[in-house]
Design a protein around this nucleic acid. Structure first.
Lengths: 99, 99
DNA sequence: TCGATATTTCGACAACCATCGAATTGATGT
DNA sequence: ACATCAATTCGATGGTTGTCGAAATATCGA
């Protein structure tokens, strides 16, 4: 059975997530990763977003630090997966705090 | 019957809301306003948050510009009300974009 | 009108952040 | 070992933003 793990967010994480979502470019990146059913390679993002490698790397780190995505090295490449539990926890928290 | 008005968010509003939520102090302020069943006077916030008047005024403007609250002058005072439709629209949008 | 109080605006400052070029690290194939 | 390619780190730069003191604006009561 699918374990419906309830993720608990610290105050810091709450802020990190909000900040991660607050940059339009980062939002679009996360949107793309979330739309993918499987992993998203880093290089595929570079084609989409017309962005400098350094900038992309920076944004990916922010998203990962916030806990919104997970990265996995595959040889020379890096693949990204969304972490829906964390987003769900964020939505739940907003609803509970600000409903 | 309660009109379930569906609020549509522009890209700019989306960013404004995310930014508004990304500052911890502002988040706490909004939390307090949302918890209130009725209006929240500006002065009552000053007691709670140990904040300079100028800073508070700045944050309130940000929250209002984002559309998350509504302000009303009452003589010398200002009262604030949450705008749950806007928050709801934001949650809906996040869910639809990033689910 | 005058003084007190509530809130906003202005101006400044420091910290933060998005951006990118250049240099670096790390893996792959030859 | 070497060249190549993917991705990260470093360093710098310009723009944004949270903060607050001081001044301005607005309202009220005396």
């Amino acid at each position: 059975m699918a374990t419906a793990t309830q993720v608990e967010l610290t105050e810091d994480q709450l802020t990190l997530i909000a900040k991660a979502l607050a940059d339009p470019r980062r939002y679009e990146i996360l949107k793309k990763i979330s739309a993918q059913t499987c992993c998203t390679p880093c290089s595929s993002m570079r084609d989409c977003f017309d962005i400098a490698p350094a900038t992309l790397s920076h944004h990916m780190k922010e998203l990962e630090t916030a806990g919104l995505i997970h990265s996995e090295k595959e040889g020379k490449f890096v693949n990204y997966k969304p972490r829906p539990e964390v987003l769900r926890a964020y939505l739940t928290r907003l609803k509970s705090d600000l409903a």
